[in-house]
Nucleic acid binder design. Structure first.
Lengths: 227, 227
DNA sequence: ACAAAAGTGTTTCGGCTACACCCATGC
DNA sequence: GCATGGGTGTAGCCGAAACACTTTTGT
C-alpha cells in the first residue's frame, strides 16, 4: 500500500468513545448494541473508523455527533489500544476518547434509533473486547482532570446549584464530599458566577443557581479535591 | 484493503519516542538525523513504523532497543498525533511515547552509528513536523508523573545520592528544591533504601548511596512535589 | 414541629516552607 | 579557616477536615 511517498503496511484505525452523561445524581455511559459480527448483539462503546482525511479527534467528533446530535461535546484522548488480537474480527488499532455530554440537551430519539442506550455506571452490562479496560482508564483520567479543574460545564445544565455540582463530584469519585467544605473550595477558585434565580425544586429553602463564567480566571494547580 | 473480516481504508501508523536520559544534572533528549525526504537532514524524534503483528508498545520497545541496545526502558504513551497534514510526506498517524533510559548503561556507539545524538533540553535544535509539540506534551506528562511518584529508577544509575535525585527533580521542573525538605519528603515515602557505601566524589563529607527498593510500598496519592 | 438542604463560622490538625544550625572534609 | 554539601531540627503558616450552628420553608 502506498500513502504519499511512504511505502509500508497499513492498519485499520478506529476510535472508541466513552460517552458520559450525568442525570439523577448518577454518571451514565452511552453504549451501542453491536450490529455486526464478531460479538454481534454485545454492548460496545460507540466507535467508528478513522477516515483517510480526518484526525482521530475529527473522527471522534463525527461519531459523537452522529449518535447524539450534539456538536459541543468535550473530548479527550485516553489511550491507544493496539494489541494485535484485541478485536477477534481483525487487526484494529483503536484510540479511546472520553466524551462529556450535557445529557439534557442531546437527541434521545437519535440515540434510540441507533440502538444505543444509557446505562448507569453501577449497572453496566458486560462490554465487548477490551472496552471495559478503556472505560476504566477513561474514568481514571476523568478523576485526575476533575481534581485539577472544576468540571461540569459539559455535563451539567447551563444553570445548576452547588448541590448539583457536588453530587456530580460525588458520582465521579464515589464518595461523599462535605457540603460546607466543598462549597467553600469551589467558590474560592471563582470560576462560577452566582445568578439571581433560585432552584427551589431540590430543597425547601431554595438554592441559588450558578453557571460557569465565560472566561475563566487562571487558577492555581493546587488540587481541587482529594480522592 | 481487507484486514480480517473488516473492510475499510487503512492508515500508516508510526510511533515516535521522546527518549530521555539524565547526565551531568541535565535532562537529555536523543534525536535522530533524518535520512529520507521530506525533511532529510532535519532533527527528528526516534521513530518507526508499527508492524502488522505488533502493538504500538511493542513497536516503541523495538525501536528504542534498536537505537540504544537497552531492553529495559520505561515507556509511556503520550498522545496520538493524527492531523492529516502533519507529515508532508504522507498521511501518517503517529503515537508518541516517552522513554526513560539509564544513559550510563546504553550503547553509545550504537546510537552514533545510527546518526543519533543526545541534546541537552536547553540546547535543542529545531525539530521536524510536530515533534516539538510531542516533546512538550511528553515533558508535561513526565512532570505530572514525577509529582505523584518518585521517578529516577529508569534514569539514574543503580546507586545514587539524595543530591543526585534532587538534581534530577530540579532538571525536570526547572526549579531548585530545598535540600532539607526534599530529603525528608523523599525518605518519608520509604521507596528508597540506604546503602552502606558513600559517594565522596560530589561532596567533601560524602553522602550515602541509596537505591530503589525492589518492591515498593504502596504510597499515598498526596503530591510528592509541587510545581 | 420536623426534616432537609442552604449557607456560614470555627477549631483542630497535619504538612509544607523557610529557615537555622551543626557535621565532615578537602582545599 | 573557609567553602561546600550532608544531615537534622524547628517555628510558623496555610489549607484541609470535621463539625457546629443558624436560616428557610414545605409538609
Amino acid at each position: 500500500m502506498k500513502t504519499g511517498q511512504y511505502n509500508h503496511s497499513a492498519h485499520l484505525v478506529a476510535i472508541d468513545c466513552i460517552i458520559l452523561g450525568y442525570e439523577n445524581t448518577e454518571l451514565k455511559l452511552l453504549l451501542f448494541n453491536r450490529k455486526i459480527e464478531p460479538a454481534k448483539g454485545g454492548w460496545s462503546l460507540v466507535g467508528g473508523w478513522v477516515e483517510p482525511d480526518e484526525s482521530v479527534e475529527t473522527a471522534a467528533r463525527r461519531v459523537t455527533y452522529k449518535i447524539s446530535g450534539l456538536k459541543e461535546v468535550y473530548l479527550e484522548q485516553v489511550h491507544v489500544f493496539s494489541e494485535p488480537q484485541r478485536d477477534p474480527g481483525g487487526r484494529v488499532i483503536s484510540v479511546a476518547f472520553y466524551a462529556l455530554m450535557p445529557i439534557d440537551k442531546h437527541d434521545r430519539e437519535l440515540v434510540e434509533s441507533h440502538g444505543a442506550k444509557w446505562f448507569s455506571l453501577n449497572e453496566l452490562p458486560e462490554l465487548i473486547f477490551d472496552h471495559q479496560e478503556m472505560l476504566n482508564m477513561a474514568l481514571e483520567k476523568l478523576r485526575l482532570k476533575a481534581s485539577f479543574e472544576l468540571i461540569g460545564r459539559s455535563l451539567l445544565p447551563e444553570k445548576f446549584t452547588l448541590l448539583q455540582i457536588r453530587q456530580l463530584y460525588n458520582a465521579i469519585y464515589q464518595k461523599e464530599f462535605d457540603p460546607g467544605n466543598f462549597r467553600k473550595k469551589i467558590l474560592s477558585i471563582k470560576v462560577l458566577e452566582k445568578l439571581t434565580s433560585k432552584n427551589t425544586s431540590e430543597s425547601r429553602k431554595g438554592a441559588f443557581n450558578y453557571r460557569f463564567k465565560k472566561v475563566l480566571p487562571p487558577y492555581r494547580v493546587n488540587a481541587l479535591v482529594k480522592y
